[in-house]
Simulated scan of single mutants.
Amino acid sequence: MKKWTAFLSNLMMWFICPVALAGWMSWSVLMYWDSNHTLFDSGWVSADNKQDRTITIKHSLPSAPTEVTMWFSPSPNGEPEYLLNWSWSADLSGNPVTIAANRSSVTLNIYKGVPLHGVWDPLSGWHQFSAGYFRVIAR
């Protein structure tokens, strides 16, 4: 029974999905859960690109995060939400330009010269936002 308890207490779950990139199929890890590690979720943090700025999000982790996942949404309730990835130029996909992390915070650097964020849809093309919300999930 002790072996099963130890196994279950260290259980890790990975959610993996296929991602098509330029005609190639690859795999992307979307979420990671480990019962022995703290997970930080910032909730939705308001942002805009009216001026060059830094958004500092304080986290509750015991050290600098080793894994960070970021999301963008044009609405405060997170619907729809878009995983941040930069496979396109900054003038299309936008901010944050730089993401930094240390033992107390995650910092997003926003450049006013590009959209706050841009998303592409095959039916309607590019949608670019000058205001919206970022969410940081880290461990």
Rank of each mutant, 00 (worst) to 15 (best):
N36F: 02
T66P: 01
R135L: 06
P122F: 10
D34Y: 10
T56L: 07
V19D: 06
G118N: 02
W88C: 09
P65W: 00
D121W: 04
G125T: 03
P115E: 09
N77H: 10
A6K: 15
W86H: 12
F129Y: 02
S105T: 08
R53F: 01
G125A: 03
V68L: 14
P115W: 02
F134A: 03
L8Y: 07
R103N: 15
W71K: 15
G94C: 02
R139H: 13
A131P: 01
T5Y: 08
I16H: 09
K58S: 10
W86G: 07
W4T: 12
Y32P: 01
V119D: 00
M31E: 14
P18T: 13
L11G: 05
K2D: 12
K112G: 01
S60P: 00
A131H: 12
N77L: 06
S35M: 10
D91Q: 12
M1A: 12
F40L: 08
K112H: 15
H59Q: 06
R135S: 02
T98F: 10
G118K: 00
W33S: 14
V19E: 11
L84W: 03
F72I: 08
D121V: 03
W44Q: 00
G132Y: 00
T66R: 12
D41E: 14
V136K: 00
M12G: 08
R103T: 13
H59M: 04
V19S: 08
L84P: 01
H117T: 02
N109L: 10
W24K: 15
M70T: 15
I16L: 14
G113N: 14
N102A: 08
T69E: 08
V106R: 01
T107C: 05
L84M: 15
E81P: 03
N102K: 02
N36K: 15
W126V: 01
A47T: 01
A138M: 09
P18Y: 07
A6Y: 11
F134V: 02
S28F: 05
V19A: 04
A20E: 11
Y32L: 15
R135N: 04
T98Q: 15
R53A: 08
V136H: 01
L92T: 05
N95S: 08
G78Q: 03
S42R: 00
W126N: 01
K50L: 13
K112C: 09
I99S: 05
N102M: 05
S130L: 05
D121Q: 03
S46G: 09
S105Y: 00
F134M: 10
V29H: 07
S73M: 04
T5V: 15
A20L: 11
